[in-house]
Structure formats: C-alpha cells, structure tokens
Computed example of a mutant assay.
Amino acid sequence: MAFGLRKFNYKYVSTLALLGAGAFLLLNSQAWATALTNNASGIHVSKTNVGNNTTLQIAAQPQTGVNRRVQFAQGRSSTTIKGAVPLGKKDIYTFRARKGQTIITEITWEGDRVGADNNDEGLSGFTFVWPNGKVMEHPQNIYFEATSTGDYRVVVAQPYKLTNSRYTFKLTIE
C-alpha cells in the first residue's frame, strides 16, 4: 500500500495515515531522516523532488518472521542458522561485534529462482546494517569490517520468487 504527499514541508510536523486501518505516524524532519536511513521497521520511504513539490512514497510491509539476537556457543566464533522466509517477509538477526573484527555472513538459499536461469547469480538475499544505521542492500561481498563496537544486523529476505523459501545463514566473527 502506498501514499503520496505533495508540497510536504519538512519544517512542520505532519500526520500520515498508514495501512488503511487507521494507524497514524507522527514524524518531523529528523524522524524522516531516521526512517530513510535506518529501515529495519518494514516501512519503506522514498522521496522525490520535482521543482517546489516533494512527493513521499510510503510502502508498509507487515513484519513477520524471526527477529532474534545471535549468541555464539562458548568458545565459538561461528554459528549456522537454518530458517525459511516467504517472499515479501524478512528475518532479522542482530549480533554484537567489536571494532576491527571481521564479520563474515553467508546466506545460501535452498530454492531456485522461478522464471530465470538457475545459474543466475543475481541478488544476495540479505541486507547488512551497521550500528550507525548505514545500510548495504544485497552486498555481493560477504566480508565486512566492524567499524565500531556495537550491534550489527543481517536482514534476510528472498530477493525474488524462489521454489523453496528455506535458507542457511552462517555467521562468523574473527
């Protein structure tokens, strides 16, 4: 579901109706900046400026699935998690890393892409989120350097329709 607003003035607080169920969201300009950069809530916001008019596109996606903190077994620096996530939903894994550590994330999907060549590399099926809210969608590299000590997130979502929604998520911190 999407809504558009014209001539939105960021200096004033605006109320937006979401989801047709009467849910309201009260946001000011600072909150919009947060919504645009730290997007693990399932609400996708995009902004388009044409002349003096600003259009905001808001798409709300119901959040279901896994939302869990990853803990390693004592003495281990790696873990493997098996899960399944339907198309359009997401699973969120949060973990702590210290500055300078290497974070290795690998998602392997069991299903094949529907309607495409099975050898198609395509999108990775995950989003990497740093503690400061910086987001990297569908990274092709699975190695990340922890730029600060804090909570990192991996958001797993089918990048396109697959024959099977099951995946294996391997996380290693060195």
Rank of each mutant, 00 (worst) to 15 (best):
M1D: 08
A2Y: 12
F3K: 08
G4S: 12
L5V: 14
R6K: 11
N9H: 09
Y10W: 06
Y10K: 11
K11A: 07
V13L: 11
L16S: 10
L18M: 11
L18H: 05
L19M: 14
G20V: 02
A21Q: 06
G22E: 12
A23T: 14
A23W: 11
L25C: 08
L25R: 15
L26W: 14
L27P: 01
N28C: 01
S29M: 10
Q30L: 05
A31V: 08
A31Y: 14
W32K: 09
W32M: 13
W32R: 13
L36T: 01
L36M: 09
N39I: 03
N39F: 01
N39G: 15
S41D: 09
I43V: 13
H44L: 12
S46D: 11
K47G: 01
N49W: 11
N49H: 13
N53S: 08
T55N: 08
T55C: 01
Q57F: 12
A59G: 06
A60E: 12
P62V: 09
P62R: 15
P62Q: 11
G65K: 07
G65A: 02
N67S: 08
R68L: 06
R69N: 08
R69F: 12
Q71E: 14
Q71F: 10
Q74P: 00
R76T: 00
R76F: 13
S78C: 06
S78Y: 13
S78I: 01
S78G: 07
T80N: 08
T80H: 10
K82R: 10
G83V: 02
V85G: 05
P86C: 04
L87C: 01
G88E: 12
K89N: 15
K90F: 02
K90E: 09
R98T: 09
R98L: 04
R98W: 08
G100N: 05
Q101Y: 00
T105I: 01
T105A: 04
T105P: 03
E106R: 15
E106N: 14
E106F: 00
I107H: 05
T108N: 01
W109F: 07
D112S: 10
R113Q: 08
G115D: 00
G115Y: 04
A116H: 14
A116W: 13
D117P: 00
D117F: 02
D117V: 04
N118M: 06
N119Y: 12
D120E: 11
D120V: 11
D120R: 15
E121Q: 09
E121P: 05
G122A: 05
G122M: 06
G122Y: 04
G125V: 03
G125I: 03
F126P: 12
F126K: 03
F126Q: 01
F126R: 06
T127L: 03
T127W: 02
V129M: 08
V129T: 06
W130Y: 10
P131V: 01
N132C: 04
N132M: 01
G133A: 05
V135W: 13
M136S: 04
E137F: 00
E137L: 02
H138V: 09
H138G: 06
Q140S: 07
Q140Y: 06
N141E: 01
N141C: 00
Y143F: 07
A146N: 03
T147L: 09
D151A: 09
V154G: 07
V155F: 02
Q158H: 02
K161Q: 13
L162V: 07
T163M: 10
T163K: 11
N164R: 04
N164C: 02
S165G: 07
T168E: 02
K170Y: 05
K170A: 07
L171V: 04
E174Q: 13
